[in-house]
Amino acid sequence: MDELVQAFSLLFTPGSELSQIVLLTLQMSAFSTVISTVIGVPLGVCVGLYRFRGKRLIMRILNTLMGLPPVLAGLIVFFILSRSGPLGTLKLLYTLPAMVTAQVVLITPIVCGLSATAISGIAPLVHETAHGMGLTRKRELLCLLYECRSQLLSILFVAFGRSIGEVGAVMLVGGNVQYKTRVMTTAIMLETNMGHFEYAVALGIVLLVISFVINSIALTLQERTSGVETGVAWNASRGGKLGGDGR
């Protein structure tokens, strides 16, 4: 309990190492989430919307990559950025961009697969309606995205959650360097390895609280802007993920 109080008071001490770690964690997660969404959602929409040869194969590959072990994603990026790797001259290993890259490799397939599933579940309905209303292809696409907004939002949360809680890849390519690449998860790992189990748990709780606050803010904003009741949004998205298999 003392450790928890200590952790929270450190969190709100400007200039403390913990506040720096939290800021870096948020920075990393924001970049990873945005980049993998920007890449993953359009790809997912294409895969989900259009019929083409090899679609089943692509869906299978995406579903497999959704379970990509973080350490493997980290290793791949490590080999590419290593001194002896193809991009070694960029000297990106053990930096924030390296961590974001590894996470993008890890998260993009998840975003892509989930959005493909969400889109393909609802696409035939929207297409029928749009056809009936005589909408252009462009309007139809916008309409489709609008109909999927709650699913897409929850995909964003999944991406963010995966990023903020991930340890294997960032440990490997970030190196857990103090003041430079140490994030919450690698700090928890370090405290555990140092035998400070209680403080490690306290840091974990801090991380969960931060996640909770961010999720709440995002959901509240979404409620305000679109008037969608979030419980329904969440349920719909779960239903979309579990029910409509899009294959």
Binding site: M171, G175, N176, V177, Q178, Y179, K180, R182, T186, A187, L190, N193
Partner: peptide, 10 residues
């Protein structure tokens, strides 16, 4: 001075 916070191997 790089503080790696890691095991010997890493």
């Amino acid at each position: 001075y790089v503080n790696a916070g890691a095991g010997m191997g890493a």
